[in-house]
Amino acid sequence: MFSRILTSGLFAGAAAGLITALLQLYFVQPVLLHAELYEGGELVHFGADPVTAHPDLPGLFAEPVRDGLSIIFTMLTYTGYALVMAALMSVAERQGHEINARTGLLWGLAGFITFHFAPGLSLAPEVPGVAAADVGARQIWWTVTVAAAGVAMWLIAFGGNLVSILIAALLLMGPHIIGAPEPESFSGPVPTEIGALFAARAFGIGMTAWALLGSFAGYFWQAEGKRAEAAA
């Protein structure tokens, strides 16, 4: 059982993580590098003069160590997600729910809502150089929000009655009604256009990543199960 969870999690996480890392490097990283020009003071916004929206940015893999580490850490992160997902898939299957690449897509979207969208609704994915509250406080809020959203997704998917849905709605809204830690003042030097594009790209690539992760996890879960049955 554990080897089935481990194998599906590792395969799905590594595959989805690698694709995601490449998508992030192409679609998200240039926006981050652009923001860092403002963070470091090389470009200054909000002055009297307009600033070019198209500065020279380092190309893909211009910093191989930095980008290589990003690929490794993306694969690791998505492997972490995939292990949690495969473990929960094992529980759901034991309760009689079918797990395959198709249902995995729904698992992936639920995972996206849990780990990206729910915390990101109040703590929007941030570029370097924007004002934000203390990182420790934000991490606590992030963790609680993700945990609440995860339980909510399970209740919506498998609760099967109105009370479950209502509890899920409360769990999803609660952290945002209480409110995320916010900065005391705005001091970030990065143009809003860059911040908005970054958040949109992070969400878009995140959703793609989770759709892939869920489908892959469902596929490998089923394939590993068949392989184990054939071997038995």
Partner: peptide
């Protein structure tokens, strides 16, 4: 075949959350 123990799932969740 799956067994009744939730320990493998629990261990995988802890491992996954640890990596995250």
């Amino acid at each position: 075949a799956a067994g009744t123990s939730v320990l493998p799932a629990l261990f995988a969740v802890v491992l996954g959350l640890g990596i995250i």
